[in-house]
Design a protein around this nucleic acid. Structure first.
Lengths: 141, 141
DNA sequence: GAACAGTCTGGAATATATCTAATGTGACAT
DNA sequence: ATGTCACATTAGATATATTCCAGACTGTTC
């Protein structure tokens, strides 16, 4: 996604394209992992426009509310974020806690009986086990 | 689950049955929600055996390691816990953040191509949308 | 160019989790 | 019954993650 596209997507979410907000969105868009707020803060400050911690958190909140960014459900201490590009599921390593993407596929909805009057928006899968590195380490260790 | 059963399950996990540990396990077993560590701490101290915060955290860690308790993957600040009784999926409300159980059903595994050399232990579904209360509030509001 | 809404900032405050060092407890060999 | 060992617990200090706050800045509109 190029600069113009990021700018447009921010505006489509009703958000001004400020340098700090742009930097957060640009980093999330190009980042393959699922960075924590602290990592995003550090990354956008490695290059130019300085951004305070509070601003980084504010912008992440705004981006999530605007639906441009997803907060990933993991059980670690720090929240992790993810630009809403291609849909994917998540694999969480039991050993090292890393979160990796798994190719998207559709999932069977629950029976409407167990869903009741809830309004369902999306289903996401969380896989658990050992990531490739940890699986190898266990096998050879 | 009665007292004896809890005691046995602790010992089967290689854990001594101390009053504090028992209290945590007993509360999680009877609790229908998915309490945070702070809620568990408060609950086990409402009745008798006082337990310190550190002990509550230690015991939760031990119980998770022993496989008796699950740490639920949600995106809130505080970790949430769940006695591993009946398997279930989770529904997280977009509006109020409550975590509710959805009846278990088996989920199609990902293609082995996208899984690679990872070792898969379990798959869990996370549904998002509006819980019954919030759905009604929106409809009438 | 004044007023305004939205944004940014550093630092303080809060929430959450872990560490530390001292102490307590039960099992068991002596 | 005593000493010892491993495991548990405790209060308080510390670390980490997030939010709040009050003031300053910016771009737009009248």
């Amino acid at each position: 996604m190029n600069a113009e596209a990021i700018k447009r997507s921010l505006e489509s979410g009703g958000l001004r394209c400020t340098p700090q907000r742009y930097a957060v969105m640009a980093f999330l868009t190009e980042c393959k992992r699922h960075p924590t707020a602290a990592e995003i803060f550090e990354a956008v400050n490695r290059v130019d426009p300085r951004s305070s911690r509070a601003t980084t958190y504010n912008n992440l909140r705004d981006l999530v509310q605007a639906g441009l960014v997803r907060e990933v459900a993991v059980e670690g201490r720090a929240a992790r974020f993810d630009a809403k590009g291609m849909r994917h599921h998540h694999f969480i390593c039991d050993r090292c806690g890393n979160v990796e993407d798994i190719e998207w596929y559709n999932v069977r909805r629950p029976a409407s009986r167990s869903l009741g009057k809830r309004i369902l928006r999306e289903c996401e899968l969380i896989f658990r086990g050992l990531c490739i590195k940890c699986a190898q380490r266990r096998a050879s260790g």
